[in-house]
C-alpha cells in the first residue's frame, strides 16, 4: 500500500536518509524502530512531504507521492500525528479536531467521525471546549491521534506516541493503537520504545544512521540478537 523505494533525504548537506526502502501493506501495523537521530522522524517527514527526497520514490497504492506538496499528500490519504504531540495549544479540543478535517467538506461524515473519535477517547469528549494546551500529556497525545484520524487517512503515521508519557499511560496508548488497527486502519508506527512497538506491530524495520539494517516480522525481530541487545535492553 505505502512503499518507499531507495529514498535519500538531506537536511542541507547532511545526508540523513541513505536509501530507505520499506513497505506497509493494507491493514498492517508496521513499526520503524531506532535510536535517537537514526532517521525515524526524517523518514516520516519525507513521506508527508515536509522534506523532499533527493533520490528514490514513495508510492501510495501505485501513485507516486514524492515531490508533491504536503497538503496534497494529506488529501491522498496520509494522516500524521507529529512528534512531540504538536497540537494547537490555544485552540479548543473541538477546534483541533475540526482542523484535522480541514481537507474534507462532507459535514455529515465529519460529524460521524467526531463521534467516532469521541467514542475512542471519551476523555476528549469531556474536555471538548478546553484549550488543547491545558490537557495532560496523555490527553494531548490522544488529541493528536484523534486529529490525524479526522482526515480519514488510508495510512496513519504515528511519530513516537509514547514519548514522555508515564508507563501506565504508554500501555493505554498502545491499546488504542491496537484498537485502531482492528478497525482497519493501516499504521506506520515510529518508536523508540521497541519492546512495546514490537508487541503491537505485525512487522518491523530497524533503522540505524539512515540505513535499514533489519526487517522481519515482529515475532522474529523480538528474538533477534541485535534487537535484543541494542533496543530491548536484554543481555
Amino acid at each position: 500500500m505505502l512503499e518507499l523505494r531507495d529514498v535519500h533525504s538531506y537536511y542541507g548537506h547532511i545526508h540523513a536518509l541513505k536509501g530507505i526502502s520499506l513497505s506497509v501493506e493494507k491493514g498492517e501495523i508496521v513499526t520503524l524502530i531506532g535510536a535517537n537521530g537514526a532517521g525515524k522522524t526524517t523518514t516520516l517527514r519525507t513521506i508527508s512531504g515536509l522534506l523532499h527526497p533527493r533520490h528514490g520514490s514513495i508510492w501510495l497504492d501505485g501513485e507516486r507521492l514524492d515531490g508533491l506538496p504536503p497538503d496534497i499528500i494529506v488529501r491522498k490519504g496520509v494522516g500524521q500525528s507529529p512528534e512531540g504531540r504538536q497540537i494547537f495549544p490555544r485552540l479548543t479540543v473541538m477546534e483541533n479536531l475540526e482542523m484535522g478535517a480541514y481537507t474534507r467538506n462532507d459535514k455529515e461524515g465529519i460529524r460521524r467521525d467526531l463521534e467516532h473519535v469521541f467514542g475512542l477517547f471519551p476523555r476528549l469528549a469531556e474536555r471538548r471546549n478546553q484549550p488543547g494546551g491545558t490537557l495532560s500529556g496523555g490527553e494531548q497525545q490522544m488529541l493528536a491521534i484523534g486529529r490525524a484520524l479526522m482526515c480519514r487517512p488510508r495510512v496513519l503515521l504515528l511519530d513516537e506516541p509514547s514519548m514522555g508519557l508515564a508507563p501506565l499511560l504508554v500501555e493505554t496508548i498502545f491499546n488504542i493503537i491496537r484498537e485502531l488497527n482492528r478497525e482497519g486502519t493501516t499504521i506506520l508506527l515510529v518508536e523508540q520504545n521497541a519492546a512495546k512497538a514490537l508487541a503491537v506491530a505485525h512487522r518491523g524495520y530497524v533503522i540505524e544512521t539512515g540505513h535499514i539494517v533489519l526487517s522481519d516480522n515482529a515475532a522474529n525481530l523480538r528474538q533477534n540478537d541485535l534487537v535484543r541487545k541494542a533496543y530491548l535492553g536484554e543481555t
Partner: peptide, 25 residues
C-alpha cells in the same frame, strides 16, 4: 471561515498546518 481556520493553524505552526492539508502558498 475555513480560510480563517487555515490562517490560525498557520500562525500556530506552519509544519503542523501543512500536515493538516493546508496549502501554505
Amino acid at each position: 471561515s475555513r480560510q480563517g481556520r487555515a490562517w490560525m493553524a498557520m500562525r500556530e505552526d506552519e509544519d503542523v498546518a501543512q500536515t493538516m492539508g493546508i496549502n501554505l502558498v
